[in-house]
Amino acid sequence: MDVAIQSLPLLFKGLELTLIITLGSVGIGCIIGMVAALSRLSGKRWLRLLATAYVDFFRGTPLLVQILLVYYGIPVLLQDSQEFLMNTFGMPQLIHNYAMPRLIAAVIACSINSGAYIAEIFRAGVQSIEKGQMEAARSLGMTHGQAMRYIILPQAVKRVIPPLGNEFIAMLKDTSLLSVIGIIELTKSGMLVVARTYEAFAIYITVAIFYLVITFTLSRYIDYLERRLKTGD
């Protein structure tokens, strides 16, 4: 028990990083997701195809593989393509250090992954708005963009908040995968403490409780929001 208490500061630091990465990733994921969702709903075929390919790829492959791909794969790809350009076209060397900062790689991988899920959340939100709303707006002379902005999106945002909260919870847990590239988030800090103290049960159960406290609080809050939004719809 003592070990667990002594290791609390370290675990809190890990928790802090977990929260920062989750918030950052879901935040950036929202921007990517909005763009991807509007692309999927767009009239332009190539945009739809591009966005669909993105969503399919990142929802259809494990986040762990995506993390490895970004952290280890991208630098190799950069190096190879730069060497190709240098050798073939005589381009000067632009990048000297290929290694990618861990934290950047972590946020990139998680944001892109989250963006794919959020794109589907946004798309479903927009499509859940009755067709008559768009028709009424257009019949008043609004452009498609105006109808989206003033009529569809404000209504969709409300319906999107609960699933977005669930995505946040999922991402929070999934950041534990970042331990494989040496990010000292909550799970990895637990592993480090265990390596030193061998108190596997006490430490890992503490780690688990940390996650639980946050996810539980959040999911209760989402339930509350959901109930409130239902009456205010």
């Binding site: 008559g132 709303q133 028709e135 009424a136 257009r138 019949s139 002379g141 209504q155």
Partner: peptide, 18 residues
């Protein structure tokens, strides 16, 4: 869009903005 400004429409299901 500019033609529609001159053509008002009333729907069966009202379609007011909730």
């Amino acid at each position: 869009n500019s033609v529609r400004q001159d053509v008002g429409m009333v729907f069966q299901r009202f379609n007011l903005f909730p």
